[in-house]
Amino acid sequence: MSTVADKLAQKSSRKPRSKQVRLRLVYIDFWSAIKLSFLAAIVVAVVTVVSFFLIYLVIDTMGIIAQLDEFIVGFADIQISSFVGLPQVMAFAGVLAILNLIVVTVLGAVLAGIYNLAVKVSGGLLVGFTSN
């Protein structure tokens, strides 16, 4: 006959199974959503400014702006290079990055609010977790 100690020793020699938990996401904190969307917007703003700078450098190095100047001077007395310089391009990139920052932050807050309202109808999102 087996004793209790034998049963416990047999149980401890088995490989422990991973525990699975199924949880339902029923609420997204409004301020957490704003902070996360603001952080994502900052990343997108930095990428926007750097990409505008690099694209301008490539276009300027290839001489496309100078060729465009020569082409347009044939039609009118307007020089594109006076409108499309590095300061103007970076100012436009900065304005675009700030607008994008505002829009993405507000969009994150709106989506969190919409999700919180939709949870009342649908019951939430079922999420599964496991421990290794």
Rank of each mutant, 00 (worst) to 15 (best):
D6M: 12
A45P: 10
D69N: 14
I28D: 00
A93M: 08
Y115F: 14
V21K: 12
I102M: 03
A5F: 09
G63F: 01
I28C: 03
L99T: 10
K7C: 05
A76G: 09
M90H: 07
I65L: 15
A76W: 09
Q88P: 03
S82N: 13
K19W: 04
I72W: 05
G94P: 05
I78S: 06
K35I: 07
S82H: 09
I98Y: 11
L126F: 12
F53M: 11
K120H: 04
L126R: 14
R22M: 03
Q10P: 01
L25V: 13
V106W: 00
I114K: 12
L39S: 15
V73L: 09
Y56F: 15
F71L: 09
K11L: 15
S18L: 04
S131Q: 14
F129Q: 05
L125G: 00
A66T: 09
V21C: 07
I78F: 15
Q88Y: 10
R14C: 01
G85Y: 05
L96M: 14
A118W: 10
Y115Q: 03
I55H: 02
R24M: 11
V106I: 15
I102F: 03
V127A: 07
Y115A: 03
V44F: 14
V103D: 01
T105A: 12
N100L: 13
T105H: 00
I72S: 02
P87N: 08
Y115S: 01
S32R: 09
L107F: 13
L125N: 08
D60Y: 14
A76I: 13
L54W: 14
I28K: 01
L25Y: 08
M1K: 08
V50P: 03
I64E: 05
A91L: 15
P87Q: 04
A76V: 14
G113E: 08
S122F: 07
L107N: 13
P87D: 07
I80P: 02
G94Q: 06
V84C: 12
A40L: 12
L96R: 07
L96K: 11
L107E: 07
L96W: 08
I80Y: 11
L86D: 06
V58W: 05
A41W: 00
T105R: 00
I65V: 15
S2V: 10
A66W: 04
D29P: 07
V26R: 15
